[in-house]
Simulated assay, not measured.
Amino acid sequence: MALARLGRNDHRLALSAADCTTLEPLATAWLARGITVDYLTTALTAGLPAHIDSPAGLLHRRLTDKIPPHIPRATEDRSPDTKEPTHEALLVECTNCRRPGPPQALPDGLCRPCHHAHTTGSNDTTAPTTEEIATVKAHIANLRNLLKPA
């Protein structure tokens, strides 16, 4: 069905029923790899030439050459004995001092010391000094200069 819609999205990719039948196994291979129909459509229509002599030939080539790698599903990653899905250890950073920790240790995005300082209104001991601010500004200015065209 996604192949038949390509001609509606771009008249240069109009396919016959026979063309759709021929290309269907290739498109099905993409979908079997966990690709969505929208992603498939975008991959097939991105960067089209101005003139297309053979829409079926072009799409066959793209379906063959641009097929994405197989992405294992979550059930394939687990051993048969595992009942719960396995998760890699996830660490997040405190939004104030950038201290890493597990998500449950950083309620509202703040570590315990920063959360305490924020709720009690005490002075923030992790605030940058004037020298640190000047160093960051100089570094950013240098990066901007490097990005300027020569």
Rank of each mutant, 00 (worst) to 15 (best):
L3F: 00
L3Q: 00
R5G: 10
G7P: 03
H11G: 07
H11C: 02
R12D: 00
A14H: 09
L15K: 06
S16K: 06
L23C: 04
P25F: 06
A29Q: 14
A43P: 01
L44W: 00
T45E: 04
G47W: 10
G47R: 06
I52T: 11
G57M: 05
G57P: 06
H60Y: 14
L63N: 02
L63V: 03
L63A: 02
T64Y: 15
D65P: 03
P69N: 14
H70G: 04
H70L: 13
H70F: 15
I71R: 13
R73V: 13
A74K: 11
S79M: 13
H87R: 15
L90M: 07
E93S: 01
C94Y: 03
C97F: 01
R98S: 06
R99M: 05
Q104E: 14
G109C: 04
P113L: 00
C114N: 01
A117S: 15
T119C: 04
G121T: 03
T126K: 12
T130C: 01
E131R: 12
E131V: 13
E132S: 09
E132F: 07
I133F: 06
A134W: 04
V136A: 11
A138F: 06
H139G: 05
R144Q: 11
R144D: 12
R144Y: 05
L146A: 11
K148W: 02
A150F: 14
